[in-house]
């Protein structure tokens, strides 16, 4: 029982990060119909900026804020400087450009910072608090849950309650009509990229201290898990990304705890097939695919 509780909590706290990262993917997918394969590399770049700032000033929180700002700016930059010029008529073109960005960003980070692991500090203790003899959450886990809760609620609020959110949804759903109605569609797209990249940077700041450390490839594996999570949940559904993230986190934890860590990729494939063969658009697909 102890082990089950332990694995559950471990899985949930990783799952929360996957959820945030999957959310970033969903944001861009909804805004631009692009699966942003460069999300991981962009988030790592933001985390490196935070590392530099924290190392210079000694303040974790300043670095934390700078990471999110850097993420926002990088997202806007990628949209304005690169993605805007890509022919989107074939959905593969932006994917290939994103893969090119991955190579470029990782190479530049490697040149500037070298390929050594850099320590990534956690702002709170990662030692679990014990309640009634049972090791439960660590303060850091609580911080992760709280931050991601804020992000999820904040995004939901932006999209459901604010004028900007409404415009972004309109621009993504019906760009031509929105343009006629006076919505700055291009600007909304850039905003979407910025938001997604900012959320991605935040997720990186949360997950890197629990991994090997800061490295140009630090988010590669997280990206794969988060992409899986987004697909399981349904790429059009933010709640789906959150649920998908938690499910994938739990699955990885249980499988490596009870069966062996080498079986986790197989478990992920089985999960994907089990979900998608029943619901080809993910768990939270809004409407079932039309059949003739």
């Amino acid at each position: 029982m102890d082990r089950f509780v332990f694995l559950t909590i471990d899985g949930l706290s990783r799952g929360a990060v996957y959820a945030a990262f999957a959310l970033a993917l969903v944001l861009i997918w909804r805004a631009a119909r692009v699966v942003n394969f460069a999300q991981g590399a962009m988030a790592v770049a933001a985390a490196y900026v935070a590392y530099t700032v924290s190392a210079q000033t000694g303040s974790y929180w300043l670095g934390f804020v700078v990471a999110i700002v850097a993420g926002l700016l990088l997202g806007a930059l990628v949209d304005r400087a690169v993605m805007r010029y890509v022919d989107h008529t074939s959905p593969l073109n932006p994917v290939i450009v994103a893969l090119g960005l991955v190579l470029l960003i990782q190479a530049v980070l490697g040149m500037v910072y070298g390929s050594e692991f850099r320590p990534a500090e956690a702002p709170f203790s990662r030692s679990a608090l014990t309640v009634g003899g049972l090791a439960v959450l660590s303060p850091y886990d609580l911080f992760v849950f709280a931050t991601i809760g804020v992000v999820v609620v904040g995004l939901a609020w932006i999209f459901a309650r604010t004028a900007v959110g409404l415009r972004m949804r309109a621009a993504a759903f019906a760009p031509e009509v929105s343009r006629l109605l006076g919505v700055n569609v291009g600007g909304m797209l850039t905003l979407g990229w910025a938001l997604a990249s900012g959320v991605g940077a935040l997720a990186a700041m949360l997950v890197i201290p629990t991994e090997l450390g800061l490295h140009p490839h630090a988010m590669d594996l997280v990206f794969v898990s988060a992409f899986t999570a987004a697909v399981v949940g349904g790429l059009d559904s933010p709640p789906g990304a959150v649920v998908g993230g938690l499910v994938v986190g739990l699955l990885l934890s249980y499988v490596s705890g009870y069966a062996g860590s080498d079986l986790t990729p197989l478990a992920v494939l089985v999960l994907l097939l089990a979900v998608l063969l029943v619901r080809p658009g993910g768990l939270f697909a809004p409407v079932a695919a039309r059949r003739v």
Partner: peptide
Amino acid sequence: GPYLAGVTLA
């Protein structure tokens, strides 16, 4: 689309 990408990636 991306759902197929997800499974083949796995």
